[in-house]
Amino acid sequence: MKMLAVFEKGARLRHIGHLDLMRAMQRALRRSSLPIRYSQGFNPHILMSFAAPLSLGAVGLREVMEVSLDGNVTAEEFSRRLSQALPPDIRLLSCRPVEDAHKPPMALLRAARYRIEPRGECSLTLKDLDAFLGKASIPAVKKTKSGEKEIDLKPMIHELMLNDGKIFCTLDLCEERSCKPELLLNCLCSSAGIPAMEARIVRLLLLAEKDGAFLPLEDA
């Protein structure tokens, strides 16, 4: 069986990278004495995966991972044992058992919702947002491993709003196409004609898609 778990990566751990976080989770699983499964081979590793890496400096409020387990473990037991083994700034929020055949969260992931918190004053207005979304296309340059790529952000933005000086947005996040919130903010600022802003990124929710509508990844 597998356990699908939702956890928070707290503000204090913003600068802990993806691989370090994975290792911290693996060690927590080892401490939990849950019946975790290991891969075969010369360097066995714990069978678990995260839905999506979180960029350095970002906080994740509802991150999703799956853990392969030997035998039956109830959600309550998993939650109790893993919670005890986690460091204070990683909190387990919920979990549910799924079949081995259940698609991994990485494959189900479609988009993510973010809160972008500019440092200092946020000089963006609702008008800027409307003007931005009103464009026929939003060209942007995306940096990839193989170089720079011209992309259109417009179809990747599913939600964009401003509330109390903070930007809320839902952006594509899957293998085929993804838009980072930092990139969105840069394009938004240049469209509004204001200097680029530094911001703290909070990933609020990971999303899957079912029948044309988004739903929380852990429920898919």
């Binding site: 707290g10 204090r12 751990l13 913003r14 600068h15 802990i16 460091p87 204070p88």
Partner: peptide, 10 residues
């Protein structure tokens, strides 16, 4: 390496 300064380890 900001993680050197964050603390909060297990």
């Amino acid at each position: 390496k900001p993680a050197r300064y964050t603390g909060g380890e297990m």
